[in-house]
Design a protein around this nucleic acid. Sequence first.
RNA 1: GCUCGAGUGGCGGAAUUGGUAGACGCGCUGGAUUCAAAAUCCAGUUUCUUCGGAAGUGUGGGUUCGAUUCCCACCUCGAGUACCA
Length: 1076
Amino acid sequence: MSYHFSEIEAKWQKYWKENHTFKTKNPDASTQESTPPFYVLDMFPYPSGAGLHVGHPLGYIASDIIARYKRHKGFNVLHPMGYDSFGLPAEQYAIQTGQHPAVTTLNNINRYREQLDKIGFSFDWSREVRTSDPSYYRWTQWIFMQIFNSWYDRQQDKARPIGELIAIFEKEGNIAVEACSDPVSIFSAQEWNSFSEKVQQEVLSKYRLTFLAETEVNWCPGLGTVLANDEIINGVSERGGFPVERKKMKQWNMRITAYAERLLKGLETIDWTESLKESQRNWIGKSEGTSIEFKVNSTQKQASTHQDLQINPENAHLFQRANQIAQKPTEAESILWKYLKDKRLGQLFKQKAVVGDFIVDFLCSNHKIIIDIDKDTVVQKGEYLKKRTQILEALGYTVLRFKPEELLQDIGPVLSIVQQALREREKSVIRVFTTRPDTIYGVTFMVLAPEHELVLKITTPAQKKEVERYIKETAKRSELDRMADTKSVTGAFTGAYAEHPLTKNPIPIWISDYVLASYGTGAVMAVPAGDERDHRFAKHFDIPIVDIFEDIDTQEKAFSEKGDVKLVHSDFLNGLPYKQALEAVNRKLQEEGVAEVKINYRLRDAVFSRQRYWGEPFPVYYKNGIAKLIPEDCLPLELPEVEKYLPTKEGNPPLGRAHSWHWDEKNNKVVGVKNPEKLPDHTYPLELNTMPGWAGSSWYFYRYMEDQKRDTVFASKQALTYWKKVDLYIGGSEHATGHLLYARFWAKFLKDRGYTTVEEPFQKLINQGMILGESAFIHRIGKNKYISLNRIKKGEETQPIHVDVSLVNTSNELDLEKFKVWRPEFKKAKFLTEDNGKFIVSREVEKMSKSKYNVINPDDICKEYGADALRLYEMFLGPIDQAKPWSTAGLSGVYSFLKKFWRLYHIDKNEEEVFAVTHTKAAADSLKTLHQTIKKITEDIEHFNFNTAVSAFMICVNELTHQACRSREVLEPLVILIAPFAPHIAEELWEKLGHRQSIATAPYPVYEEKLIQETTKTYPISFNGKKRFTLELPLELSKQEIEHLVMEHPRTQEQLNGRAPKRIIIVPGKIVNIVG
RNA sequence: GCUCGAGUGGCGGAAUUGGUAGACGCGCUGGAUUCAAAAUCCAGUUUCUUCGGAAGUGUGGGUUCGAUUCCCACCUCGAGUACCA
């Protein structure tokens, strides 16, 4: 045997390294014209201490095949690799051992690199990035600064520099600017300019795309840090599986919610799998519904006596006159109207509205607020005004009265007063979000989240004790408990009632933890007839259920379908099906000013602070409690040294231990930043949190684009416009709602601010499936007694125990001696073997993991079968995106294929191998085989069907072997064809064919149709759709000729058995079907 | 529960727009070579069969000349998500 893969592979790996074979060309003028760019990227790995197992390279092999293929096709290929090297495991390890995470990380990276190199990837390592490298994370810090210095303009639907927002505030206040978060008070330009810096910054933080906020976070005591939603799986931390609880903490947040709609829409433009897009859609969780206000009854004033409201008949003419005057809007009124119309203050105002006997200037009927502007007339003064106000207030209105001068001078304070009044009113309003406003007549109670701010305000004294007890109880329950227990119904009655906005009936208000504070408004209108949870709650607490669906009894079961079922007991909605009822009720509620159609997203702003050491430091310091950015010139702000990687006694993150952070007390100078002289004052405290793992991975694909000038820009304009985006991205689906969402978010941001050119960074995305391990088990029966698999009797109870798969051969036989060495505690155990003395283990497919002793190391495979065999086998296992079990035994197939392929180019002469490719003309059948293969392989690569491509190679080699083809005309193109899959053997044969240059950029063979054209077709002859025999016929025959020949055939006559066929279907070139 | 995906030999898996089901490989069986083994090569390998054939792609129905492929219902498994109003 002369296929010496280990020599060949070592030789070419060395060659590639020394000749920089895979160095990407820079986009200068010449490349731009001649070679189109193609960017194929793998999700970069976190270099864990365990090293790679055979599952990891699967995606890398696929992307490498594409990269190599595209080079043959003449593309300028960018195919880089790097490390996502900040992260928790290195830090956990540091806490345990005291070893600096940078050291651990470096060791792991070196080990990864060694493993990767053995597989023969065509990465351009000159562009490698490491997220924990200061030269890299300085740009992560820089991007954070740009995000901090930006706000989201809802009108233009893009991020803009914060300076432009400040300019707007200085000129016209914030009346025209919609805030992204909680409502911001309205202020005028004058007011803005008079604010202190602190107030100004507080206001700006409500607009910035990253901001500090007291947020309910997922606190993980086990890890001592907060976690993002996507880092929690089933209520416990993804890493380590520690419980997670809710806690309020001051944290940096990323306003990803500003991009919710664009993140959703963008999915339509990219080529990802439906399931992945679906995950992101679910995560964003858009739902269209109605936000409805319910007034809390208890606080409503009642009109005192009827008599007070009477107008003195003597003065009736005055009132009439006053009303007439009030009808024409004055200049001052016009100004105010500008700010009140179109719900600018969040509430519907009407101009010149009638209230009782009066015409008022402005009315918010929902909140019962009246704004009157003084008129400079006699009739509007004195007793009239007093009486008028008295009457209106008695009716439950708040009357605000302003002088025209106030409005003309500075409208700011006026608006503040109006807003204040609105807020006051809001306090007695419960806003709910519902997607089923059509069921509003079925509301029999309301439920607030226990954390809802109104709960304590509205609770009646009688219910106070119970409500407080319930709140305490739910706060104690951890997230995990809540999730585990979805069946039990709990809640408490507040004693308060709300007023139904349409029927005006009193609605009891409850609290319960089935309503989440973090979604919608934290309150729901409960319709037991139409919602299962509401139904369960109503049943449990004996709250009445109103049937609102025609002919459907909802007393025992809720009916939640949105169909053609008509409504009943629903006033003006009676007889309407879902769709029409929805429209009608929305129209009505909006007219009343108590509701608006609203879009809600499940997506939350992303918490961006971590109380960890091993992450990017924030380029932030605090001056008088205000967060400020350090100057850009000072980046990178490097991680300080600490003596321990644990939180401080005061509960500060580990960075709090760096007493002399960036201030070297001995030498009296600033350290750890560039251009230290530009740092404003080293005595201001720095931010002690670090950034989360997803910070560095949200933009690394741009860094790879850049080859030079790495300290002046994160990536040059030239590089960004040339490469634009990742054409093909390969990685695991576990990043569906984390990395892939955050990276899209940052990409959109960078585009908005003009730093990059594309909206979506990953055009085509493929998720490689997991490679599963084949665990081995021995079976225990009784104490210290183990039984071989085939001796287990049917129904016998055994306890399976994992054993290391390396101790088991391909016949599932366990090496007992080695096993006892591996596990000394089994030394004295009794092993009941088969009759032949062998001990057989059972096998089961499981996830590959150290703890299951089923990990297969790619190094071992490369050593025993070679990298080319590993590459082919991983591709041959099955479709790239599917999970599939690893089986080392199966490797022999591709291994013998490679030997067979090698033999195609050699003959044995007197025990010696001779290269035997000739210049003779190829036989027609060999050319046909070759071109069929070219066609198949090309199609398969384009469609990422690597498994069938490998089998096409096998078919090709089998055929050429049979044909005894030795012709260069066939064998030379074949080497190029296989080079992307098995690059080492291809390079070796390419060299033997006389080439001096690497095969890497050899032009891809061109498929010629005429060489594979057939003249005959073996037709399947079917009877009633079942094939009964085949018949070879010339392809050029017409339907009639085929029919004639088929009908004449004795087998046809036999099948028909004398009957005449009803119909004969002939598809030339495909099939013949005779219907009898 | 919801969403998405998948069910094909002993196993991994093939099957362009509906057109010869089981390609290719593993495993298994038999044979050649060998002192023997490895390696290699050849033949066979869905099931049943009266050796003529017949049935067959999770189950049941439907559309069609023809269904692994399209439609409906159900079952099983996997992934994601989870009181989202």
